[in-house]
């Protein structure tokens, strides 16, 4: 009987120790994970600050000529923050980006087109407030795009193509090529250049219906919500893009 009690005691003690041990391991594991995430978060913030203040030399000489055409996709809800959009455009212009395409699905940016252009023109000669990033270049080309210029535009281009070439009574199947489609899009007023880099501002990591025909080899970078955009992150994304080599499937 005593032996039974002893065994019972040992088992109870073992299970308590085991429980406590597992408890500690579990807490330690989560402590490590939390510390890891915190350290990464802090490191990212510090890096952004250093880039913004120009202390990181590696980000000084960006080969901006590689970014011939930049597209910015903004989630439609966030696109209503015109002041933020203007701030972003100021940053891009101060870096030396000459051609920018602005897209949001619902066409909020298109509707705010005048206000945005006016806001840019106002500060054309002045130095960006609160920073020493120099004056804006004299001219920034802006293109405003919405979902109407995306899938519906392809349908309109197809329609245009049929009317022009294939509605005739010529026998045989219509032979449409990719270059025919490109020409039809151009003729229908939806041509637009292919962006080299596409920056996505918003909660989701997708291009939200940006014109499909134009993004075959576009680099796509998710920048997070517009409200928490950082100049350092922008510089970093553009710097990373300038270092990319594309072989176009070869």
């Amino acid at each position: 009987m005593d032996l039974g009690n002893e065994v019972q005691k040992i088992l109870t003690w073992t299970s308590v120790c085991g429980n406590f041990g597992l408890h500690l391991v579990w807490l330690f594991l989560h402590l490590i994970i939390n510390v890891w995430y915190s350290v990464l978060g802090i490191a990212r913030k510090v890096e952004n600050t250093l880039i913004s203040s120009g202390l990181l030399k590696s980000y000084h000489a960006i080969n901006i000529s590689k970014v011939r055409y930049l597209a910015v996709v903004i989630e439609s809800e966030e696109a209503r923050q015109t002041s933020k959009v203007l701030e972003l455009l100021h940053w891009l212009a101060s870096i030396g980006i000459k051609s920018i395409c602005l897209y949001d699905r619902e066409g909020v940016l298109k509707k705010s087109q005048e206000a945005i252009i006016e806001g840019l023109n106002k500060s054309q000669e002045s130095i960006i407030e609160g920073s020493d990033r120099g004056t804006l270049p004299e001219h920034v080309d802006l293109e405003f795009v919405s979902f109407a210029d995306s899938k519906p535009a392809v349908a309109k281009a197809a329609n245009f193509l049929f009317v022009k070439h294939y509605a005739s009574t010529k026998p045989g199947k219509p032979n449409i090529t990719e270059s025919d489609m490109s020409e039809a899009l151009q003729a229908a007023g939806y041509e637009g250049r292919e962006p080299d880099l596409l920056l996505v501002y918003g909660p989701v990591r997708c291009h939200m219906g940006f014109p499909a025909w134009r993004i075959r080899y576009t680099e796509i970078v998710h920048m997070g919500p517009l409200k928490s955009m950082k100049f350092g992150s922008l510089i970093k994304a553009i710097h990373k893009f300038t270092k990319v080599h594309q072989n176009y499937g070869q």
Binding site: V154, A155, N159, L161, F162, A167, K173, I176, M181
Partner: peptide, 25 residues
């Protein structure tokens, strides 16, 4: 893919299966 889809639609338009104004995304 987009081009071949357009080509199929063109054939259907030519054969009178669909009307031009029915073309959409």
């Amino acid at each position: 893919d987009i081009t071949q889809a357009t080509k199929k639609i063109a054939t259907k338009v030519k054969d009178g299966v669909i009307q031009l104004e029915e073309i959409n995304d």
